[in-house]
Design a binder for these strands. Structure first.
Length: 488
RNA sequence: CGGGGAGUGGCGCAGUCCGGUAGCGCAUUCGCUUUGGGAGCGAAGGGUCGCAGGUUCAAAUCCUGUCUCCCCGACCA
């Protein structure tokens, strides 16, 4: 069998690129660092959007849309924010081209009075807008989400994991009190955790970022961190408590019920198409993509097998009846009746594309009233009765969803270590990788030192249990272990 | 920005050292045979060799310049 996908142990990066390609999720575009998301990849993203959007709405948020362009001056209003994003902004300086012997060039006469920045994130334009929307405590809270594209001029890119333009959602909320804003930040992190675990079947650790890893302009950044199969961590989503920084920068105040004028409290939170990269690296194998049923654009594919036109007609009729029954049951099902590919080719193709369940039917099955059922996650094949197939499929889809989560969780546990000394830390990092819990003295200096020497970063200060100890590097007191890993 | 690699039919590549009719595999189209794990045979279509100059009777090939992409590092969701 021709193997089109590089084995993971041979070259993990190449494996990742091969999976993306063979699953037909995306491809490189003519534009450096930008990708073309193909229909299959977009369908996957749309399912993710739908899941998240529903959860946003259930927690009281509404969608809105703000401009792609941000006046340059807006970026200068929040000092830390500028510092964080200034080095990676696309800038629009002119408004037109002119034809010059066969080609075009930028028309120097069209230079803009004020340059426009292509949004790297929308806090500035949104807070500039909120100033006009907020006068009274009765105008609060504002709970808005935006689905958009943003641009960050990255040095190096990888499909889905880091592209110059990417799709995401960004929530931007405004609150009257600090407590309410903090609660919102926590709530949205929990939404992300739930989505990652229940939809993507991707277990995550929740926690707070250290000061140096914090979002530019945030008082506190919470995150979900996932562990990929190669032992590297992926920051999968962030929720920021922005304090009153943006309210100050954009002069957003409200008159409270006590008559006082006060600054508004803010949060922002986002996840991006990077989640697709995380999904791929959490579940997929050497045969290609594996997608959890809840997010799979196609959950079941029916592959008919036949020798001649007569058999084809019989088998297709049988397949169509199964298709109808599954569709009726609400399963996303596809009947692959293409006549120009052999079954073996189709099997391999559907596996590469990660379709959770495959039903193969041939003349023998029609005769016996059977189907051959193959699970993508385990690659196990069984023969089942055609009767009651819809119930069985629905049960199996749930089972697969759960099994994928358990499998990913077990792998993460295996790849998670606790160390007490810096020597052990380096050793584990070298030999095993993965998540490493260790004590840290809480200083940026020590964090930086560890990063320089080992390339591992503090992924987060996990929520939950605390266990006092001593910093593995300096021996100074530490309140709890923090989570280290090499990251994407 | 440092290091490495590559630009030749839609995709993957050979040809370049040593200049002489642009080739192979996959894909595509048509026909026949096939179809329970990536089918076989036959035929056909498709390329100003990244771009711009130069050398030459003759350039994918030699020279000069230039652009782009990919991979590895520093930076980042």
């Amino acid at each position: 069998m021709a193997q089109k996908i590089t084995k993971r142990e041979q070259d993990y990066s190449q494996w990742y690129l091969d999976v993306v390609k063979e699953a037909q999720l995306a491809e490189h575009s003519p534009v450096r660092g930008c990708m073309v998301i193909k229909p299959t990849g977009m369908a996957l993203w749309e399912n993710m959007q739908q899941g998240l959007d529903t959860m946003f709405k259930e927690t009281g948020h509404q969608n809105a849309y703000f401009p792609l362009f941000i006046p340059k001056s807006f970026l200068s209003k929040e000092a830390q924010h500028v510092e964080g994003f200034a080095k990676e902004c696309a800038v629009v300086t002119h408004s037109r081209l002119k034809a010059v012997d066969g080609g075009v060039e930028v028309d120097p006469d069209s230079k803009l009075e004020e340059e426009l920045i292509v949004r790297p994130t929308s806090e500035t334009i949104i807070w500039d807008t909120y100033r006009n929307w907020i006068q009274s405590y009765r105008d609060l809270p504002i709970l808005i989400n935006q689905w958009a594209n943003v641009v960050r001029w990255e040095m190096r890119t990888r499909l889905f994991l880091r592209t110059m333009e990417f799709l995401w959602q960004e929530g931007h909320t405004a609150h009257a009190t600090k407590e309410e804003a903090v609660a919102e930040t926590e709530q949205m992190l929990e939404v992300y955790r739930t989505f990652a675990e229940e939809y993507m079947a991707m277990p995550v650790i929740t926690g707070a970022k250290t000061e140096s890893e914090r979002f530019a302009g945030a008082e506190e950044t919470y995150c979900i961190e996932a562990l990929m199969q190669d032992g590297k961590a992926l920051q999968a989503g962030t929720s920021h408590f922005l304090g009153q920084n943006f309210a100050k920068a954009f002069d957003v105040k409200f008159q409270d019920s006590d008559g006082e004028h006060k600054l508004v409290w803010a949060t922002s939170w986002g996840v991006s198409t990077r989640l697709i990269g995380g999904l791929i690296m959490t579940h997929s194998d050497d045969q290609g993509l594996v997608i959890p049923p809840k997010l799979a654009p196609v959950q079941v594919v029916i592959v008919p097998i036949y020798r001649d036109d007569e058999q084809r007609a019989t088998v297709l009729e049988y397949g169509q009846s199964i298709f109808d029954e599954l569709k009726e049951a609400g399963v996303r099902v596809k009947l692959d009746d293409r006549d120009n590919y052999k079954p073996g080719f189709k099997f391999a193709e559907h596996e590469a594309r990660g379709i959770p369940l495959r039903i193969a039917i041939g003349p023998r099955d029609v005769e016996k009233g059977n189907v051959e059922l193959a699970r993508r996650d385990t690659l196990n094949k069984t023969f089942e009765s055609r009767d009651g197939i819809a119930d069985l499929v629905q049960e199996l889809l749930v089972t697969i969803q759960n099994d994928l989560f358990e499998k990913a969780k077990n792998l993460r546990e295996e790849m998670t270590s606790h160390v007490d000394t810096y020597e052990d830390f380096k050793k584990v990092l070298e030999e095993k990788g993965g998540f490493i819990y260790a004590h840290w003295d809480g200083t940026p200096e020590t964090e930086e030192l560890i990063k320089q020497e080992t390339k591992a970063t503090i992924r987060c200060i996990p929520f939950g249990d605390s266990e006092e100890g001593k910093c593995m590097v300096t021996g100074k007191p530490s309140k709890k272990k923090v989570l280290f890993a090499k990251a994407y």
